[in-house]
Amino acid sequence: MTTTGDRPVAARVRHLTKTYGSGDAMVRALDDVSLDLVEGEFTAIMGPSGSGKSTLMHCCAALDTATSGEVWIGDRELSGLKDKELTRLRRDEVGFVFQSFNLVPTLTAEENILLPQSIARRKPDREWYDSVIATVGIGDRLGHRPNQLSGGQQQRVAVARALAGRPRIVFADEPTGNLDSQSGAEVLDLLRRSAADHGQTIVMVTHDPVAASYTDRVVFLADGRIVDELRHPDRDKVLEVMARMSAPAEV
């Protein structure tokens, strides 16, 4: 296992560059980004629209491929992997929570949670599953279809699905973007406890300073580059960095 200092790294990127188009019309979504994601840490990636935060997450999560540079998940470097291997990697090593449309509408909550494992034809770890359900707190809604659940409940089911397979890393893309503040707080609390209590590595893309304040570490992106980083953030510190980042544009 690769390590930095005394803590192992769950995923890392090295000199990641992603461009769209060519010539004058070329856009650099990511420009030589290097980042280590430490095991058991809850990391937020922040930045204004177009800063490349979503692209960075998609590349890390084996959903998108970079133009150059390396992405490692555990011991595996992603470039050169075929679709079949990437699919397996996503299934076994990665968990996802999207902003919306996280659940397959035809399946019950429980079926959705167990979907990645049942696709792999793997028996779920019952004990772990029970503890996830207990943590997520939707034990009484397991037999319901997504359209019978509230938005907050749907997102918690999505988190449960992401956690159920004990992935190396969970990626969350604006998981609270569509929720009211109360439900959003529940989901964020759930993510934080997963990292703290179970050592789950989590990376979350957000533009909400409140959401970022639940994390251990915030990485700020602007114009495809990492421009700043905060440890143990609170809402005010995040807002301060954001204000500083947008300052040049206002001059």
């Binding site: 996503r90 996802f96 999207f98 449309f101 990645p116 696709i119």
Partner: peptide
Amino acid sequence: TREVGLLRAIGVSRPQ
């Protein structure tokens, strides 16, 4: 389309 994308994202393979 989105559902198919979701399935693929969480690890459903092409043959599946």
